[in-house]
Amino acid sequence: MNLTIDVTNKENIAYVVLSGEVDAFTAPKLKDALLPLTKEEGQTVEVDLQNVNYMDSTGLGVFISALKSTKEHNTDLKLVQMQERVYRLFKITGLTEIMNIDSTVQGGMQ
């Protein structure tokens, strides 16, 4: 399973649409795409996870480093349309408390 990353910019929002699996194999690619976006001051990075049906802890690590980077560079990170299985991972690790995650969670979409 692969991961496709689509980035579009509108004013000062970068929309990142992900599709596929975020795991140890695809995480480096996501990191390379996501981190530079969080370094442009004043920008909001909105990541759409509707089509991500699996994420492992390596994927989580990418979002943690992106979050740290937003704090350093005065930018924002927002995660939207997360599937239930992925949301569980953010919940267990306590990240739902410190990350901006859209609460409309997608039920077991395949």
Partner: peptide, 12 residues
């Protein structure tokens, strides 16, 4: 039990 992973925020 709730709790944030180690290494993300020093104030946890």
């Amino acid at each position: 039990v709730p709790g944030l992973v180690l290494g993300v925020s020093s104030e946890t």
